[in-house]
Amino acid sequence: MEIAIISGKGGTGKSSITAAFASIANNVVLADCDVDAANMHIIMNPTVEEQSVYIAGEKAVIDYSKCNSCRICTEYCRFEAMTISENKVSIDSVNCDGCRLCERVCPVSAISMEKRDKSRMYSGSFRFGKMVFGILYPGEENSGKLVAIVRRKAKEIATLHKIDHILIDSPPGIGCSLISSITGVDKVVIVTEPSMSAFSDLIRTVELVSKFNTELSIVINKSDLCQQITDEIITYCYQNKFKLAGTIKFDPEIVYAMVNCMTINEWKPDSETSNTLKQIYNSIIN
């Protein structure tokens, strides 16, 4: 069973909660799919057993010994990557999308593609089972594809080691990497918090998730920071018949657990927060 823990808005506590779930479930495959800003390995300190290179696309480069400044490439590029100054064509590597059309249209073969090969995928063991995480090299692209590869690896490991549960820590937002992290999963858990921003993001996230045939649960973190909005979110869940798996009060110990590289359930196992998280996890998987 694949469970994706997501949140439209960043910083709602998604990763801390995913980490807590891993320690509650025990024997899981944990897939850190927030490949832009992977964090789970900081708490979990896994032993890496395997790593592979991820090619995050290509970028066009010009060989000026061949370029005759005919500018045909500039007419075809749709990503505003080709600029001309003083009769010299240059490629803006930020805008280049790696489509290769400029290379194909160049009559003198002056353009070639350079691979982006600094991103990595790691897998290994940690204290609650197996772990897979992707680290996108800062500035490299195509994070959605890396997410898909991390999930594929997590499934392979789960089958090989006969592990039932895969927990996916997803990226924020609702774009390609998030879509890639929830496509085809069994359950989606949205972690939100009581702020107008998070509520607005929750509605957009729910709209996206409802396009997929998956079971949805909602968790409200830091619920006491604004009780009024918490109540509004609860009403919203009730009216739309969304499963509210639970609410968690603001607890600075979650931060201190992280500082000590532990999950909250390891750091303060008998605290109210840890007990609430156990109930929430059980409510989600059942």
Partner: peptide, 26 residues
């Protein structure tokens, strides 16, 4: 948020960047 395409495209247009963080390991 993040460090991939959406972030890079925004930063590339800026003259000055204010990076906001919090004092946690993440």
């Amino acid at each position: 948020p993040g460090t991939s395409c959406p972030f890079i495209h925004t930063i590339s247009k800026a003259d000055y960047v204010l990076l906001v963080t919090e004092p946690t390991p993440f």
